[in-house]
């Protein structure tokens, strides 16, 4: 009977939680990212000096990712003071394939944070380096690029950023 209950519980939970990432672990140093921005200039994760960085993996073809962008914009606005003080930053890493689709979507959504893409779709090395199985996906790193949280969204993401910044942890 206990076994049956266990199976039932697992089947309920399995359909309602994000898949576990098997490559990344909190506390590890995040794999380096070196990708072109919209102008073609290479930007590296190491060069981002903010004390807390949200790396948002998305694509213009990913409907749930596009839906999430207004929430990220709201966060960016809410924590604008921290952004100005170099304590918080968002970087978008797109798995797009067509440059025009990518840039048109960025323009349409009016996203102001750094956007990077090698336009290699799922064959981008970052997909493998970060063990991304599906989009949207994100990682939060500190100033030393240590992974703080993996794939958290919505209220959980907002609360995490809020608490991290309030605790004065975001030093670069």
């Amino acid at each position: 009977m206990g076994k049956l209950l266990g199976i039932l519980l697992i089947s309920i939970l399995a359909t309602n939680t994000f898949a576990q990432n098997t490559v990344l672990k909190a506390g590890q140093t995040a794999p380096e990212i070196r990708l072109p921005d919209s102008k073609g200039d290479t930007v590296s994760l190491a060069s981002l000096k903010s004390g807390l960085v949200l790396i948002d993996f998305w694509a213009s073809w990913c409907a749930p990712c596009v839906e999430e962008q207004p929430q990220l914009k709201a966060l960016y606005k809410k924590f604008a003071a921290s952004v100005r003080e170099g304590k918080f930053e968002i970087v978008g890493v797109s798995l797009d394939k067509e440059k025009s689709n990518w840039q048109q979507m960025v323009a349409r959504l009016k996203i102001s944070w750094t956007q990077l893409s090698d336009l290699k779709f799922w064959r981008s090395p970052v997909a493998k380096d970060y063990g991304i199985g599906e989009l949207p996906f994100n990682v939060l790193v500190d100033g030393q690029k240590k992974i703080l949280a993996i794939n958290i969204h919505g209220k959980e993401l907002e609360d995490f950023i809020q608490q991290y910044l309030a605790a004065g942890n975001a030093v670069n």
């Binding site: 009977m1 049956l4 209950l5 039932l8 089947s11 309920i12 359909t15 309602n16």
Partner: peptide
């Protein structure tokens, strides 16, 4: 009772 509750919950989710 717990099983019935779980089944109801599962049905509600599915």
């Amino acid at each position: 009772k717990y099983l019935v509750f779980l089944l109801t919950l599962m049905f509600a989710i599915k």
